[in-house]
């Protein structure tokens, strides 16, 4: 309860939550407002926004309804964002927990791998993964998860390093708890809050990465993704610039919402840091 109160003290956190609810509402009502396939031909191509009441945001260069693609795109962006974040945080937590708990050569080996992932530019690794495994929505999501775990691994490791010699862990060890139980049952719940807050950063980056891939026409062309629409609009940028402009605003709002909520959570969890 007090956490909620702390959260709602910050106006930017409230704005972030409202924006996130707006995007969620768009994703939830997409089928209701636009039951047809958003990628199907809907009308004359390149209709400007607000000129035809049937297509509120106009149509793109192949005559598809832009508003329908924006609504359905909210689903894709949130889906990819959430799933990629879960994958990335899971990998990060596992690697960070083992490295921090065991220390020694396990730590050295795992941190070497983490370092390798951080040295290789993540977008280039993403390109390699897409080149090898193709670009369906599943592979793209998994690939984004794979390239964005190192920071959460480091965060988890740091938490484990400071927690592993606390009394409650020693007590657990004296009671004869197994390592796995100690790691996941005792230490992890205490190490989780900063990682959860960091997840909002991962999600923001994941949405941006997918849109960049889609813009380069390397993401799944068979889903209504905002990045795909920006990429399509690029061909008619000189005159019908709205085709690219509209989905960009949608991405901007979504990423902004996710970051603001993350920041609000962070401030609520660490009230001491408030005002920074």
């Amino acid at each position: 309860m007090s956490l909620l109160k702390l959260y709602f003290r910050s106006p930017s956190a409230i704005i972030g939550l409202l924006l996130l609810l707006l995007v969620l509402a768009m994703a939830a009502t997409a089928d209701w407002f636009y039951p047809r396939d958003p990628l199907a031909l809907a009308g004359r191509p390149l209709l400007w926004p607000f000129t035809n009441p049937r297509f509120l945001l106009g149509t793109d260069n192949s005559g598809r309804d832009i508003a329908a693609q924006i609504f359905h795109g909210a689903r894709i962006s949130l889906l990819i964002g959430v799933v990629a974040t879960v994958i990335s945080i899971m990998i990060g937590i596992t690697i960070g927990a083992f490295a921090g708990y065991y220390g020694g050569w396990v730590d050295t080996a795992l941190m070497r791998v983490t370092e390798a992932f951080q040295t290789l530019p993540n977008f280039i690794l993403l390109l390699v993964l897409v080149a090898v495994f193709g670009s369906t929505i599943t592979t793209v999501t998994v690939a984004i998860g794979i390239v964005s775990w190192p920071a959460s691994a480091r965060l988890t490791r740091a938490e484990f390093l400071s927690l592993r010699s606390r009394e409650f862990v020693q007590a657990g060890r004296t009671l004869g708890l197994k390592d796995a139980k100690l790691i996941f049952g005792e230490i992890l719940p205490n190490a989780l809050p900063p990682v959860i807050v960091y997840a909002s950063v991962v999600m923001a980056v994941a949405i941006l990465l997918e849109s960049a891939l889609a813009f380069l026409k390397l993401s799944d062309p068979n889903v209504a993704s905002w990045g795909n629409l920006i990429g399509a609009g690029r061909d008619v940028l000189r005159v019908q610039w709205y085709v690219s402009a509209i989905p960009g605003v949608a991405i901007l709002i979504t990423v902004l919402a996710v970051s603001l909520v993350g920041q609000g959570l962070n401030d609520a969890l660490n009230p001491r840091l408030k005002g920074r």
Partner: peptide
């Protein structure tokens, strides 16, 4: 800062092309 952070870079590039180049 928040807005620049949340903006996809390629989209900003396209919008800059529209304004400054076209």
């Amino acid at each position: 800062g928040l807005v620049f952070y949340a903006m996809p870079t390629f989209w900003f590039g396209l919008m800059a092309i529209i304004v400054f180049a076209i």
